[in-house]
Amino acid sequence: MTTILQRAAINYLRSSARSSSHAASAGSHGDWKLWKNLSLFVAMPAVGLGMLNAYLAHAEEHHERPEFVPYEYLRVRTKRFPWGDGQKSLFHNPHVNALPSGYEDH
């Protein structure tokens, strides 16, 4: 994984160095073929490996939510949210996000 990251980082640095030097002299000749090959044969396969890695790790993960404890610094509701009933955050997910009174399906 670190090698993928390293390779990607090197590509990125190369690409930004190239693009900035070309922006200054827009008339100079750049070779798009190199960048197309880097995109299709280095970067895109790296994306594929990243997808595989994320998928496999996700599959073997345990989905246990922690027990509800009403800590004061969590589920802060000093003012209602300006939408809905004002108790649920924008990306509220009833399975993993408890309300100040506890999980909804409990």
Binding site: M1, I4, L5, A8, A9, N11, Y12, S15, S16, R18, S19, H22, A26, G27, S28, H29, G30, D31, W32, L34, W35, K36, L38, S39, V42, A43, M44, A46, V47, L49, G50, M51, N53, A54, A57, H58
Partner: peptide, 25 residues
Amino acid sequence: QIPLLNTIILITSGVTVTWAHHAIM
């Protein structure tokens, strides 16, 4: 996991945008 994938995606998009830039030049 997904954050690493996102990092690879954005770096890849930096390469593809350079591909486009060289092509238009």
